[in-house]
Simulated assay, not measured.
Amino acid sequence: MTRRDALIDVIDALHAEIAALKTNDVASLERATTTKLAAIETVAALGQGPAGPELRELAEEANRLNETCRIYVNLMAANVRRRLQMLTGDHAGNYRPGIAAAYA
């Protein structure tokens, strides 16, 4: 396997993660994440020789997709936090008047 092949595996796994996040499919998300981590380990094991334009482009694509995954996860976490706050009657969230002044 080449670094190119391993990076393509990372990209494919990231696409699968995004699809699983969009549909809230936990089992698919777990499989995609496991596949992604294994592909990243493969990339690391193949060394850090010079990267040509194609490898750089693949790495940048993987980084963009990973950023997309991060955004989805953060949005989902914010939704959960908001729902929990509504369930507990804490509509203001973490904001409390006067608390900010205590840290100033």
Rank of each mutant, 00 (worst) to 15 (best):
E17N: 03
H15I: 04
V10Y: 00
R56T: 15
E54F: 00
N63H: 12
Q85Y: 04
E54Y: 07
A19C: 07
S28G: 15
R56F: 07
E30P: 01
T35R: 00
N74I: 10
A100K: 13
A92T: 13
I18N: 03
A44K: 14
L55W: 00
A77T: 15
G93M: 02
I11Y: 04
I40Y: 00
M86S: 11
Y103S: 10
R56V: 13
G89C: 11
T23H: 06
E54R: 09
A101T: 11
V10I: 10
V10A: 03
Q48D: 14
K22I: 04
A45T: 09
A45C: 03
E17Q: 13
V73N: 15
L58K: 03
R70K: 10
T35E: 06
E60D: 15
M86D: 13
R81E: 15
M1N: 08
E54K: 05
Y95C: 05
G49T: 10
A32D: 04
A77H: 15
L84D: 07
T68V: 10
D9Q: 12
L84G: 11
T2Y: 08
S28V: 02
V80Y: 10
D12Q: 04
T35F: 04
G93V: 06
T34Q: 09
Q85D: 15
A100Y: 09
Y95T: 10
S28I: 02
N79D: 15
G93I: 05
Y103A: 11
L87E: 13
L37V: 07
L84S: 09
A19H: 09
L46Y: 04
A59N: 14
N24Y: 05
A44N: 14
T23C: 02
Y72D: 03
A13K: 02
I99T: 12
A62N: 03
A13E: 01
A101P: 01
G89D: 09
D90E: 12
I99W: 13
T42D: 00
I71P: 01
G89A: 11
A51N: 08
A27S: 11
V10G: 02
T35H: 06
N94P: 06
M1R: 07
A59E: 08
I8L: 10
L58D: 00
L84P: 05
M86V: 07
R81K: 15
H15T: 05
L14Q: 07
V80E: 05
A38N: 07
